[in-house]
Design a protein around this nucleic acid. Structure first.
Ligand SMILES: NC(=O)c1ccc[n+]([C@@H]2O[C@H](COP(=O)([O-])OP(=O)(O)OC[C@H]3O[C@@H](n4cnc5c(N)ncnc54)[C@H](O)[C@@H]3O)[C@@H](O)[C@H]2O)c1
Ligand SMILES: NC(=O)c1ccc[n+]([C@@H]2O[C@H](COP(=O)([O-])OP(=O)(O)OC[C@H]3O[C@@H](n4cnc5c(N)ncnc54)[C@H](O)[C@@H]3O)[C@@H](O)[C@H]2O)c1
Lengths: 216, 216
DNA sequence: GCCGTTTTGTAACTTTTTTCACAAAAAAAA
DNA sequence: TTTTTTTTGTGAAAAAAGTTACAAAACGGC
């Protein structure tokens, strides 16, 4: 009944499924279809919706476009969400270059580095000195940060972010970050995800539930 | 009491914490310390260990090196785990280049592409034509695959992998993949992870539990 | 060798999450 | 119009996950 991480991840999945259904020309959808697309039970879908007051029609299911609009609103897509990245190495650069964020209403405004060879000032997405990060976040009112620096630098980067106004962080460094409660932190540890695959592959047991992303 | 995804993710975290403790010269560790490093309760740590028969000493805690060795064994680090990647775009290239896998006993042996401009044959990690993937997997006995292709290509790539002997997959495409029970699939959806951060940032409510990677 | 302290290992309990199951509404068929 | 079918919305039940709490073991000091 409460909204938790997994619930929101499921909403993202429902949303993705709805976008595809819409592109295929579907007008209505049943909880069954969404359940199937998201890999859950249909009662779960209806229950998730009931938390947010999303209702359908007895027998008629849900209208794809209405539902999609509501999910988008819940997921914060009613306005562009701006973010910055610290660390423009392998992962950071991959995220900066990814063009899929744009159509999800997520805009990465700038990257920040300590390695000057990675700097590049230009329209669109600049990569600037880490020293400029705090000021940039503050003057642009950015609330979302992505941490893609080596583990030993992550906590320090987080602190700069939080002190400058960042309220939510997606972290790729394989370390537990500590922050004040004013900032929520979601960490994605890709090595752990692979270790997970390896473990369940080895025991070849189907005790496995899909990660919820995913993500988690 | 059962081994689930989150439990294995926690083991990865304990392992990471132990590596750091070992490097700092620690010889013993208490469930409390690991709990703190992993962001969980100390009873959770002991319970996780009890599932795998990992025991410590009443009062003395756990020996760091023994525990680390056992966790490494459980997580499949007793031998090098080989993997292949399909799709060497932003994410695929970031993973191929990442040198942190090596010291975790994970070796990405090759990448596979449909875009010839991405091909590069050379010692170490080659990027080859997708057409060669099945044969490569088979002849090298690879069991782990990483999918980093666009969503519309992911299911098809998965099928080639599974038919060639892949038993576990880490998927980055934001779509639900379907496979026979012989292959486990763990999907990481980075957009959903960001949407999660955005959601919980907006409601500014601390109903939030950290992703289990964090996965998870 | 005894006593107080610390920390494990786990049984019992609590909380959270998921699934079941069914009345009620709506559409379609008769 | 009445009946049948379908699908929602939600309590109640079940299952899963996490926490509490404490006996038992082990260490250190005396
Ligand atoms: N690339 C992967 O596939 C992968 C996989 C698993 C985990 N990770 C984790 O993701 C993080 C980034 O990995 P990567 O492969 O991109 O590493 P990378 O070394 O390629 O990039 C890190 C970048 O951060 C920069 N940097 C270092 N300290 C900084 C600081 N204080 N402020 C700003 N920038 C700083 C470096 O100059 C570098 O460009 C690491 O914590 C790594 O463990 C990456
Ligand atoms: N890069 C990111 O930050 C990011 C974020 C979220 C999700 N994703 C997801 O990860 C996946 C990869 O993203 P990306 O940014 O690396 O995309 P990309 O377009 O940079 O790379 C995809 C690569 O796959 C190759 N490809 C296409 N079809 C193929 C096939 N059938 N077999 C082999 N290779 C094929 C393309 O040639 C391309 O090089 C996508 O599904 C994307 O939605 C990426």
């Amino acid at each position: 009944m409460t909204v938790n991480r997994r619930c929101i991840i499921r909403l993202s999945r429902y949303k993705n499924a709805l976008v595809r259904l819409k592109n295929l020309g579907f007008v209505k959808v049943f909880s069954d279809n969404l359940a199937d697309a998201a890999g859950v039970n249909s009662a779960q879908v209806r229950k998730d919706f009931s938390i947010f007051g999303l209702t359908g029609n007895k027998r008629g299911g849900y209208r794809v476009d209405e539902l999609l609009e509501e999910l988008n609103r819940i997921l914060g897509k009613d306005r562009v969400q701006e973010a910055v990245i610290a660390g423009v190495g392998n992962i950071g650069a991959a995220l900066l270059q990814y063009n899929g964020f744009e159509k999800e209403g997520i805009k990465i405004r700038a990257g920040f580095e300590i390695d000057p060879s990675k700097f590049r000032e230009r329209p669109g997405v600049s990569v600037l000195s880490l020293e400029k990060m705090g000021g940039y976040i503050r003057s642009n009112g950015i609330e979302i940060g992505i941490i893609a620096v080596p583990d030993f630098a992550a906590q320090q980067v987080l602190e700069i972010m939080v002190n400058s106004g960042i309220r939510g962080v997606l972290n790729f460094a394989p370390i537990r970050l500590r922050s004040s409660s004013s900032c929520i932190i979601n960490s994605v540890n890709l090595v752990a995800e692979l270790e997970n695959v390896i473990y369940f592959t080895r025991i070849a047991d189907k005790n496995f539930e899909d990660n919820e992303s995913q993500n988690t």
